[in-house]
Simulated assay, not measured.
Amino acid sequence: MSPDRLRALCLSFAAATEEFPFGPELSVFKVRGKMFALTALDARPLTVNLKCDPEDAIRLRAEHPGLIVPGWHMNKRHWNTVTVDGGLADRQVRELVEDSWDLVVAGLPRAERLRLDRP
């Protein structure tokens, strides 16, 4: 997956925004002010930090050693760093990003979820 496709994917979710609170080199993708993805789009290899259910995080790391690892500079229980430039199918990357977005949305107040059509 290319950096442009990763950016487009992250912005394709409802209410997704891209911000740069840590400087111009780090894209932070948020939904209603809460982060669901963090990446340096010009980094090689291209990686993205994504929120993940703790049990799924362990399973994914075991299934994809070296491609999915504990989140870099994040809570290692709830975040994974995913290498997205070739080792994983684009479909799987999309599912991981969507899962991250879903987890963040699930933690939003009910009124915010309703505005996203996600009860």
Rank of each mutant, 00 (worst) to 15 (best):
P21V: 02
P21M: 03
P21R: 08
F22S: 07
F22T: 06
G23T: 07
P24N: 15
L26G: 02
S27V: 06
S27P: 10
V28Y: 04
V28H: 08
V28P: 06
F29H: 04
F29N: 02
F29C: 02
K30P: 09
V31Q: 11
V31W: 11
V31M: 11
R32P: 03
G33M: 12
G33V: 12
G33D: 12
G33Y: 09
G33H: 11
K34W: 03
K34M: 06
K34E: 07
K34I: 03
M35P: 06
M35W: 06
F36G: 05
F36S: 04
F36Q: 04
A37Q: 01
A37P: 00
L38E: 00
T39N: 04
T39F: 06
T39D: 05
A40G: 10
L41C: 15
L41K: 11
D42T: 14
A43H: 07
A43M: 02
R44M: 08
R44N: 05
P45C: 14
P45R: 13
P45V: 14
P45G: 14
T47E: 05
T47P: 00
T47N: 02
V48E: 09
V48R: 07
N49P: 03
N49C: 04
N49T: 03
L50C: 03
L50E: 00
K51Y: 07
K51F: 10
C52L: 11
C52V: 06
C52P: 02
D53V: 01
D53L: 02
P54I: 05
P54M: 06
P54A: 09
P54T: 05
E55S: 13
E55A: 15
D56Y: 10
A57I: 00
A57C: 09
A57L: 04
I58T: 11
I58F: 02
R59L: 15
L60V: 05
R61N: 04
A62N: 14
A62T: 13
A62M: 13
